[in-house]
């Protein structure tokens, strides 16, 4: 490591390569070493075995990797794990109740909003945050909210219907 970096670290700005990471994932505290270059998606899938979060494009376009960071939908493929230190992460596994399904998940099932299912966790996380913020979104608000998630199977039609139905039913 160059000496300048050490100096910087000594002055308060962390510049080490293996600081520890303290985060909460789906309600459980995680404390582990994490190099700066570790991407949140990789941390979740590879290190924590939370494989519900999907890797679709790895470049921030498709939305398959969406997770909540402090309740906010976030592209985990473009997030450095170290930069969510002390934050709370919720993945699709965390959106799922211990028993059964959430209203939104049930609506996705009943309305046929899943086909191949690969984009589904991302859509569900996005839609969960939407309904948290706006329990009764209009159709166009739903379309706006999911406009960062790509689905190749459904044409989005049944996804939108499912979110509408879940909103009607309330949570």
């Amino acid at each position: 490591m160059p000496s300048r970096a050490k100096g910087a670290a000594a002055n308060g700005a962390e510049a080490t390569s293996s600081s520890s990471l303290k985060i909460t994932v789906n309600g459980l505290p995680i404390d582990r070493p994490c190099p700066p270059e570790r991407i949140l998606l990789d941390l979740l899938r590879e290190d924590l075995d939370l494989t519900g979060t999907k890797r679709g494009c790895d470049l921030g376009t498709c939305g398959c990797c969406t997770v909540l960071v402090d309740g906010r939908p976030t592209l985990s493929c473009l997030t450095l794990a170290r930069l969510v230190d002390r934050r709370s992460i919720t993945t699709i596994e965390g959106v799922t109740p211990v028993h059964g399904l959430s209203t939104l998940q049930r609506a996705f099932v009943e309305h046929g909003a899943t086909q191949c299912g690969f984009c589904t966790p991302g859509f569900l996380v996005t839609a969960t945050a939407l309904l948290e913020e706006r329990p009764h979104p209009t159709r166009s608000e739903i379309i706006d909210a999911i406009s960062g998630n790509l689905c190749r199977c459904t044409g989005y039609t049944k996804i939108i219907e499912a979110i509408e139905a879940a909103a009607r039913e309330g949570r």
Partner: peptide, 15 residues
């Protein structure tokens, strides 16, 4: 409804 729906909406479906 698709019988694999519950696994897909929870991220439990294994790819």
């Amino acid at each position: 409804p698709y019988i694999d729906g519950p696994l897909k909406v929870t991220g439990q479906a294994e790819y």
